[in-house]
Design a protein around this nucleic acid. Structure first.
Length: 632
DNA sequence: CTCGGGCTCT
């Protein structure tokens, strides 16, 4: 096709003797067939020669090609407008096209300027014009300017047009003027489904769950978008359970989930760590023959990864037809967070080999993998290559990875060097990494400094206090433990209670520390006693320094330790699953050292694979050892 | 004779 256009164009340019019965139509045809900017420019040249380029319809076509098509150029589009202006008043179509083109290329401000230019030139806006300009206002959050346009629209009686009215609702909703949005919604004569959905989105954005649900219930009928909006709202507010319920209800109501639905529900399932539900969704995608595009592919990889199921993630990765950087990044992260850092590094090499250009996020993932596998030299090299080979300036997160990398390996001098050299002030994430590493390497001095800084930088986060006091306890510095505890109490910071969950037959069971509310509490505690017995035989002794913050009495401390939520969840899973079944536990906080050693032993004693997802990573316990190799 | 990716996920 490309060759045809080029050949035809040069033929026409080179041989004025060839007679074309309708040269104007031929040119437009050639223009439409153009697949490259230079071809269009050649046709444009022909049109200029025959004075066709300022003819209103042809100029519109030219502007459209330049402003909208993939091989266009907004600069040329504006040139078309300029040349028309010199001859006559441009049509609204040319303006509409330019406004739309700039919107599509993420320059809404230019769209607005063109609209103003249009008005100055006394070109009458059409209702197409308003839809584009209102969208530009929405993207710019230009509420006042949008209100002016709204006024204009009302004045000329166009406010009842559904497209325009919906854009107005959207504008107000996005700008947070929810009552104005509702007014526009209430006063519209015919409310189509988009109007309802737009209003739903408004409540969702404004975090008004009550009005959102009320409106959803009032809807005369709902489509997939309506359901998706509700599901997304649940996900955004951390109500993963409710999101999954909505997803079920949606299907019961006969509405077919689409890709957007699936992406949302997968992220909810990932939060819950509900693997069997995630597998169901994967099977559903395959059954319906839905193609794994980049978004859906990444959502699946992410879900499997967060459920500790690396095989599933690999499947989803391989099943994603057109892999983007994000797809690769997701897979690299999956390996890294599941304790397979060397695989992550391997995949990065494959990625480079496949000619995919890594981005800043790729390097965060990969440097993180290096620190978790203790690949210090490799990480050092990659950090250099990041700028040298790919021109990516490291941001604070990358420096954080490097600090983590060195500190985890016990190279505190190197870590400090990085911090001194970097063009940023250390952030809480960095101090936290340093503090954790100090605890592992028993570098109390470094830990004290990091912990103090951490508490100053993130005074409302309980993690700093907990980590620091735990470290003091390890060092047997009980006076400091008390100080930290007091500071925490004075500032009204509460320790977030540990909470773990396991999924059984599609139902997620939750346990908090010392939980006695579950229907099968008695059996659970009996199981725990059995654990205790077997552990004692293995020669295990509880590490009571891990509890600290909430308890003084040694006896209570011990019992609290045995009742950590992950242990309850594991006991429950033991009661309800056949020997040999892999157990997956999701925890909101990091696993404590005592639980970590207990679970290691349990995996050995009972020959069970136990996978625990804590707040920062996965622990795959198999036959007495853990994939994190003691680093977490 | 042309034009509304109308709302939902990342």
């Amino acid at each position: 096709m490309t060759c045809v256009v080029a050949a035809a164009t040069s033929l026409l340019l080179g041989s004025p003797s060839i007679s074309d019965p309708n040269p104007g139509a031929t040119n437009l045809c050639l223009l439409q067939m153009s697949r490259h900017l230079r071809e269009a420019i050649q046709v444009h040249g022909l049109m200029i020669k025959s004075s066709q380029s300022t003819d209103p319809y042809s100029a519109g076509r030219l502007a459209e090609f330049y402003a909208i098509s993939d091989h266009g150029s907004l600069e040329y589009a504006e040139k078309v407008l300029e040349s028309v202006e010199q001859v006559e008043q441009p049509t609204p179509f040319i303006y509409n096209t330019l406004i739309r083109g700039n919107l599509m290329r993420d320059d809404p401000l230019r769209s607005i300027l063109l609209y103003q230019q249009m008005l100055r030139g006394s070109v009458e806006p059409e209702h197409f014009t308003f839809t584009f300009v209102l969208k530009a206002c929405t993207e710019l959050l230009a509420l006042d300017f949008g209100k002016q346009i709204h006024g204009h629209v009302v004045k000329i009686g166009m406010d009842s047009a559904p497209f325009i009215r919906n854009k107005i609702i959207h504008l107000y909703a996005v700008c947070g003027a929810i009552s104005d949005a509702r007014k526009a919604f209430d006063t519209s004569t015919e409310r189509d489904i988009v109007a309802w959905n737009t209003m739903l989105e408004g409540y969702s954005r404004n975090n008004d769950g009550r009005s959102l649900h009320a409106l959803f219930n009032e809807m005369p009928y709902r489509d997939a978008v309506s359901w998706n909006t509700m599901i997304a709202y649940c996900v955004q507010n951390g109500n993963s359970d409710e999101a999954v319920d909505m997803f079920r209800l949606m299907q019961e109501c006969g509405e077919l989930p689409n890709k957007v639905t699936l992406v949302s529900v997968l992220s909810a399932i990932a939060c819950l760590g509900a693997l069997s539900q995630g597998k169901w969704v994967h099977a559903y995608i395959e059954k319906r023959g839905i193609e794994l595009d980049q978004n859906l592919g990444s959502a699946l990889i992410n879900m499997y990864s967060k459920c500790g199921c690396i095989e599933g993630a690999i499947d989803a990765f391989n099943g994603t037809k057109e892999k983007s950087v994000d797809t690769w990044n997701s897979m690299i992260t999956s390996y890294a967070s599941n304790g397979q850092s060397l695989k992550a590094l391997e995949l990065f090499t494959k990625m480079e080999f496949a000619g995919i250009r890594p981005n800043a996020i790729t390097f965060s993932c990969i440097l993180n993998a290096c620190s978790h596998s203790g690949s210090v030299d490799e990480g050092d090299k990659l950090f250099e290559r990041m700028y040298e080979d790919y021109g990516i300036e490291p941001d604070i997160a990358h420096y954080g990875c490097m600090v983590d990398l060195f500190a985890r390996a016990g190279l505190f001098e190197k870590a400090k060097e990085v911090m001194a050299r970097m063009p940023f002030k250390p952030d809480a994430v960095m101090w936290k990494a340093l503090l954790s590493a100090s605890r592992i390497h028993k570098n109390y001095e470094m830990g004290e400094q990091a912990g103090t800084q951490l508490i100053e930088l993130a005074p409302t986060d309980d993690a700093g206090y907990v980590l620091l006091s735990n470290m003091y306890a390890m060092a047997d510095d009980w006076e400091q433990v008390y100080e930290v505890r007091k500071k925490m109490k004075d500032r009204g910071i509460q320790k977030v209670p540990g909470c773990s969950s396991v999924e059984l037959d599609g139902i997620v069971h939750e346990f908090i520390v010392g939980d006695t509310t579950h229907a099968r509490t008695k059996e659970i505690y009996e199981m725990m006693d059995e654990f205790g017995e077997k552990l004692r035989i293995e020669g295990y002794e509880p590490d009571t320094k891990q509890v600290l913050l909430d308890i003084d009495d040694e006896e209570v401390r011990q019992s609290s330790l045995t009742h950590h939520s992950e242990k309850l969840a594991i006991a429950f899973a033991f009661i309800n699953t056949k020997p040999g079944t892999t157990i997956r536990v999701m925890k909101n906080l990091r696993v404590c050292g005592d639980c970590h050693s207990v679970i290691k032993l349990l995996s050995k004693i009972y020959d069970r694979e136990i996978i625990v997802r804590d707040s920062s990573r996965f622990h795959h316990f198999v036959r007495g050892s853990c994939s994190c190799k003691g680093y977490w």
